[in-house]
Amino acid sequence: MSSAKSIQEIEASLVDDFSLFETWEEKYEYLIDLGKKLQPLEEQYKTEQFKIKGCQSSVWIHSFHQDGKIFYKGDSDAVIVKGLVSLMITVLSGQASQVIVDAPLDFINEIGLSSHLAQTRSNGLRAMIRQMKLDAVTLQGIGSRE
């Protein structure tokens, strides 16, 4: 589970992946596919406590601490948002707390999805990132968000 790659390397490789697609359809199909293939989150974590409320869809993030690194698992009821969850987990899971907190996460704007997907408050992406960073700080000293 631990990642030898830096956040920058992972982000660059995601931007590379997305740059292979020429049409919006291919990009979204890839994102949807990532969403569908996301490692399932155990039902016990799909509760209010782990929910990040967007305007229209729900996201659940379970964060935990292992061997000095922070790990994430997640889910969403909307599959495109679940694809975004998958991207965030790919980039952040397995990194050190401070690295996560400092991550600018510029790749979201660079993978060429429609700008509103990256920016709008309605899909809860901002809230998702905020929660993941917050959990990283909290977990540094404890064990997991319970």
Partner: peptide, 12 residues
């Protein structure tokens, strides 16, 4: 199908 997914793909 989640309505939000649909709205994003229709907007595109």
């Amino acid at each position: 199908v989640h309505p939000q997914d649909l709205a994003i793909l229709l907007d595109n």
